[in-house]
């Protein structure tokens, strides 16, 4: 078991009112799974991803990631989990615009103080071998997102979390990105969780989790059922 959430609830305070972003979530993910989390905006799917990514803590519940009881860890220990176990892919590409593609990927290895620098190899793998020294603004959206994927892989994480990875991409680039993610899952056994509202993405994953109003409506359904639930 790589992810185990038990009765996880997250309540945000906005002004004087409280919003229940996650309501008693139970979720288990095995190592090597490729899952998608579907839901409309405001459903709590991004909050769920933040909590799994150790960027946020739940109001109540239990979380076990990679065998660690996450709620017992300090901020410093959580940042270690992030840099050693998790690769992030965001909807916006979030690259450092003053670093070239190679430097953006290497930065992660440097933050983690790791010696084996696979940045070049990873960029070649995502098809950017000829764009190593380009700054982000010299790359297309799809290329930038592929740099982000290479970066997410730089520390050889067990888990890759992708928040709307194709949200800002055209169809062709989106397909490229999904293909890369699928390949990583199949060939290297990476556990991958993708948050999306795009059924074309979701249908390519093995397991679809549907979330709405902070609750899991259905786990392991088909795309059609999911779309029905989300209507």
């Amino acid at each position: 078991m790589i992810i185990k959430l038990e009765n996880v609830t997250k309540i945000y305070k906005i002004g004087d009112s409280y919003i229940k972003a996650l309501d008693n979530i139970n979720l288990e993910v095995e190592e090597g799974e490729l899952i998608s989390i579907m839901g409309p905006s405001g459903s709590g799917k991004s909050t769920l991803l933040s909590i799994i990514g150790c960027l946020d803590k739940p109001t109540s519940g239990k979380i076990n990631l990679f065998g660690f009881d996450i709620l017992k860890l300090s901020d410093k220990e959580l940042s270690k989990i992030r840099k050693n176990y998790i690769g992030f892919i965001f909807q916006q590409f979030y690259l450092f615009n003053y670093l070239n593609a190679l430097e953006n990927v290497e930065l992660i290895t440097k933050i983690a103080n790791k010696k084996n620098n696979k940045a070049k190899e990873l960029l070649e793998k995502v098809g950017l071998g000829n764009r190593l020294y380009n700054l982000p603004n010299q790359l297309s959206g799809g290329q930038q997102q592929r740099v982000v994927i290479a970066r997410a892989l730089a520390n050889d994480p067990k888990l890759i979390l992708a928040d709307e990875p194709t949200g800002n991409l055209d169809e062709k680039s989106a397909n490229d990105v999904i293909d890369i993610l699928k390949k990583l899952n199949k060939e290297e056994g990476k556990t991958i969780a993708i948050v999306t509202h795009d059924p074309r993405i979701a249908e390519q994953t093995e397991r679809i989790v549907v979330i709405r109003n902070g609750k899991i409506l259905s786990d392991n359904t088909t795309v059609d059922e999911a779309l029905e639930l989300l209507k």
């Binding site: 990514g53 960027l55 901020d75 410093k76 940042s79 270690k80 992030r82 840099k83 050693n84 992030f88 979030y94 450092f96 930065l107 992660i108 933050i111 983690a112 970066r151 520390n155």
Partner: peptide, 11 residues
């Protein structure tokens, strides 16, 4: 982003 990528507060 730096923090999400694993930098802690002191860094």
């Amino acid at each position: 982003l730096l923090k999400a990528l694993g930098m802690d507060n002191n860094e």
